[in-house]
Amino acid sequence: MNENVTAPLRARAEIDLAALKANVRSLRAHAPGAAFMAVVKADAYGHGMLPVARAAKEAGAEWVGTATPEEALALRAAGIPGRIMCWLWVPGGPWREGVEADLDMSVSGLWALREVSAAARELGRTARVQLKADTGLGRGGCLRADWPELVREALAAQAAGLVTVTGLWSHFACADEPGHPSIAAQLTEFREMVGYAEGEGVTPEVRHIANSPGTLTLPETHFDLVRPGIAMYGISPSPELGTPEDFGLRPVMTLKASLALVKHAPGGLGVSYGHHYVTPGPTTLGLVPVGYADGIPRHASGTGPVLIGGKRRTVAGRVAMDQFVVDLGGDEPAAGDEAVLFGPGDAGEPTAEDWAAASGTIAYEIVTRIGSRVPRVYVNGTSGAPDVRQADRAHTV
């Protein structure tokens, strides 16, 4: 939905589509021999699934990846062309719709293979499936002991015309921890499980295991396709690996709010629930109208950084459901002035990584948790018109 974004907004998450496209191109340069899957699960990590998928495709992504089939089906219904893969299925899922939409559907066990095969048989069509190997993450995927049976049944279903095995894939547990011994162990396991499947007659179009850290730092993991997630949004998968700038990436989301109130306060005033902050002397307080209902971490109470009037401030007291307070130290910005919670950091504003450190989590969670009450405002998305902005209040699926 388009809106007049020159009108004041309580809060907004500006999504820089030019930065996103540049990130896709930079990541592709790290893996020049592999196809690129733009991972847009969880509403594109909070950035807006459809605008991000379109921008990533424009930047050269051959594949789009989601967690749930519902996300993938929404992409197809919105007209996203080409290869779309989804991997988080449960029994009774929309297999028929997935076959009809020509999705690539992940299979981790026999129940899933049998359900997708039944859907294909009913439709009289061939389903596209990818077999997932659990190489050491201990989460989704088929363990080595069960792999021969899954491969055998998949080949039988393929011989019957029910499925085509388009891929073999897995996921790392610790690729964001340089030198972790599980990286080499998982890579060896993946090669051996792929080798077994291919030896039995599977001829996959793509083999893939590289996530963001794999794409950026482990070229031996690139195989036929890479699947960057968080790095596509300009956030480093791990501070230990390097900063976004180290990898030629730029943060895509900037979270802003308009000050709702600025007032003079005496010393000794308790601020917000529980009075965990008490003004040390006469000061000014600013009210920022976003809270944990908008995705601001309550764990950042007393620690979360904000840029107001060109200065870094800190959340004073507890983050509430809809708002939090900052001690302005006597400065007097006006109600309606801008508070920048995080962004690329160009103007001294905090980054998502700063908020992650302040709340004891990872930057993935900071951007992904920004809720639907915060409109996404898309900037730099139209060639030749960098100032065109679109606000999307219906960005979620």
Results as ranks from 00 to 15, higher is better:
2 N>L: 12
7 A>W: 11
11 A>P: 09
14 E>Y: 07
16 D>K: 15
16 D>E: 03
19 A>S: 11
22 A>Y: 04
22 A>I: 04
23 N>F: 02
23 N>A: 11
26 S>Y: 04
28 R>F: 04
29 A>C: 11
31 A>M: 09
31 A>S: 03
32 P>W: 13
32 P>G: 05
33 G>W: 12
34 A>Q: 09
34 A>R: 03
37 M>F: 12
42 A>K: 05
43 D>F: 00
43 D>P: 03
46 G>S: 08
51 P>F: 05
52 V>C: 08
53 A>H: 03
55 A>W: 11
64 V>Q: 03
69 P>L: 08
71 E>F: 11
72 A>Q: 12
72 A>V: 15
74 A>T: 07
74 A>C: 13
78 A>K: 01
80 I>F: 08
84 I>A: 05
94 P>D: 11
95 W>L: 05
96 R>I: 10
102 D>C: 11
102 D>M: 06
104 D>I: 08
105 M>D: 03
110 L>G: 00
119 A>C: 11
121 R>V: 10
127 A>H: 14
128 R>F: 15
131 L>D: 00
134 D>I: 09
135 T>F: 07
141 G>A: 04
143 L>Q: 14
143 L>D: 15
143 L>P: 06
153 E>D: 08
154 A>L: 04
156 A>Y: 08
158 Q>K: 12
159 A>T: 04
162 L>P: 02
162 L>H: 03
165 V>I: 05
167 G>Y: 01
172 F>E: 08
173 A>L: 07
174 C>M: 10
177 E>P: 09
179 G>C: 04
182 S>D: 15
196 Y>R: 14
200 E>C: 11
201 G>R: 14
205 E>H: 01
208 H>C: 13
209 I>H: 11
209 I>D: 02
211 N>C: 15
212 S>P: 06
212 S>D: 01
212 S>R: 06
215 T>C: 14
220 E>Q: 13
223 F>Q: 00
225 L>F: 09
226 V>Y: 09
230 I>A: 01
234 G>N: 02
238 S>T: 01
238 S>L: 06
243 T>K: 07
244 P>S: 09
245 E>A: 15
250 R>G: 04
252 V>Y: 14
258 S>H: 09
264 H>A: 15
269 L>I: 10
269 L>F: 02
275 H>E: 06
281 G>Y: 15
284 T>A: 04
284 T>D: 10
290 V>L: 13
292 Y>R: 09
294 D>F: 00
298 R>W: 10
299 H>N: 12
301 S>Y: 01
303 T>I: 13
309 G>K: 12
312 R>V: 01
314 T>Q: 08
318 R>L: 05
321 M>Q: 07
329 G>M: 00
333 P>V: 04
334 A>I: 03
341 L>N: 03
341 L>H: 07
349 E>T: 01
351 T>E: 00
353 E>T: 10
358 A>P: 01
359 S>M: 01
364 Y>K: 06
366 I>E: 00
369 R>F: 11
372 S>R: 13
373 R>V: 09
375 P>N: 07
377 V>F: 14
377 V>S: 03
378 Y>L: 12
379 V>I: 12
383 S>D: 13
387 D>P: 05
389 R>P: 07
390 Q>G: 06
393 R>S: 06
395 H>W: 11
395 H>F: 08
